[in-house]
Design a protein around this nucleic acid. Structure first.
Lengths: 199, 199
DNA sequence: GGCCGAATCTAGCGTCGCTAGAAACTATAG
DNA sequence: CTATAGTTTCTAGCGACGCTAGATTCGGCC
């Protein structure tokens, strides 16, 4: 009873992951609009209803893919940050890595940041990978900077804006490097406490 | 033959606008997922196929709503900019107006910036309202600033990122004012011609 | 009044996410 | 080794989607 159900549990977990990776591969190959429950079921060689024994619905599958994406993003950013020698460099490295991630895995990025998902952001029940990704931005600023969380939020927002607007063709792909350059020099600029209102 | 077809043309144009406003109202009331061709047809009191005699498909209807939205956005930003006394103030006023627009008309904003549309951005065939909206950002910087277009792109991207991430709950709604404040002081910072690449 | 072209509708195609109930499979008891 | 009870999986189908072909109705013109 024990060993058998354990094996079943293992097989079930394996199939669970199989669904997630199949959804991701299909999305990366043909876009999320091609990821239908029917095609996904065919791909994992089961019938449609088994998907619903693993996930509440399609959104939950997208969420699962997104969650995997956040783990990868956190690792990707961390690698970039740690490869940079000092603090000033790390900001640039992390930003570049972020945009790189967004452009090279557009479907994954979409699942993480654009499509509706069940993931809870910025709360106590935020999954660790999300928090870890965000913390990579926070770590780009000096620990004695009291407003580093705020800085990170704005930086992340700006990068997300650049990523998503250029991906959808709303700003030209060309000139991405200059935009990044400008953003970094401005954000990294004269930081420290606060220069008061410049108005 | 002339007067009759003219009247018809008028009626047709009226119905065209009726569809657009119906789509918009429905989207603003219940979200875009509630805007189906069936419900839209019912709302304008015609059958489904008439929608397709006016628009190529649903995306084209969304695009039409978005285009109207850009006209409103341009006017909204212009009003804000012109109400501000000087250049330093206008940047803040326009940014605030932008975020206000995004939060108060979320469905419209979604049509303009998130949903797939047929609109061409940043090209020769870009509709004037789009260009006009963008130019409001450009006008916030001094005319002798050679990189003002770049500045505007980054500023717009950052605002869009803030708008969309807070709308979808990916950053907390609280603290929006501080984020805006930080962004403006950084972007407006030491501008002028160009300090060259700061590495 | 009868015709003809344009405008409009009815009805339906294929696909979607999702699910109820049938079928098949598996582990245990006799 | 078979019968049974319970679980797993599948077949089949529901209602809704975007979209369209073909029938129908409408309005101006001889």
């Amino acid at each position: 009873m024990s060993a058998i159900s354990e094996r079943r549990e293992r097989e079930r977990a394996h199939r669970h992951q199989l669904i997630i990776t199949a959804a991701r591969e299909l999305a990366e190959a043909e876009g999320w609009e091609a990821v239908t429950t029917r095609r996904l079921a065919e791909r994992v060689e089961y019938s449609q209803p088994v998907l619903y024994s693993h996930f509440h619905g399609k959104d939950a599958i997208v969420s699962a893919v997104a969650l995997d994406g956040f783990s990868e993003l956190a690792a990707h950013l961390r690698r970039a940050r740690q490869a940079a020698p000092e603090l000033g460099q790390s900001l640039r490295a992390v930003c570049r890595a972020y945009l790189e991630f967004a452009t090279e895995r557009p479907a994954l990025y979409q699942a993480m940041f654009i499509l509706p998902t069940d993931l809870k952001f910025a709360s106590t029940e935020t999954p660790p990978p999300l928090r870890a990704s965000f913390d990579e931005f926070v770590s780009c600023f000096r620990p004695d900077n009291e407003r580093r969380e705020l800085f990170a939020e704005v930086l992340w927002s700006a990068l997300h804006g650049i990523a998503v607007l250029s991906e959808s063709g709303r700003i030209p792909l060309q000139g991405q490097e200059e935009r990044l350059d400008f953003l970094i020099t401005r954000i990294a600029g004269t930081s420290s406490p606060a220069p008061g209102h410049a108005s």
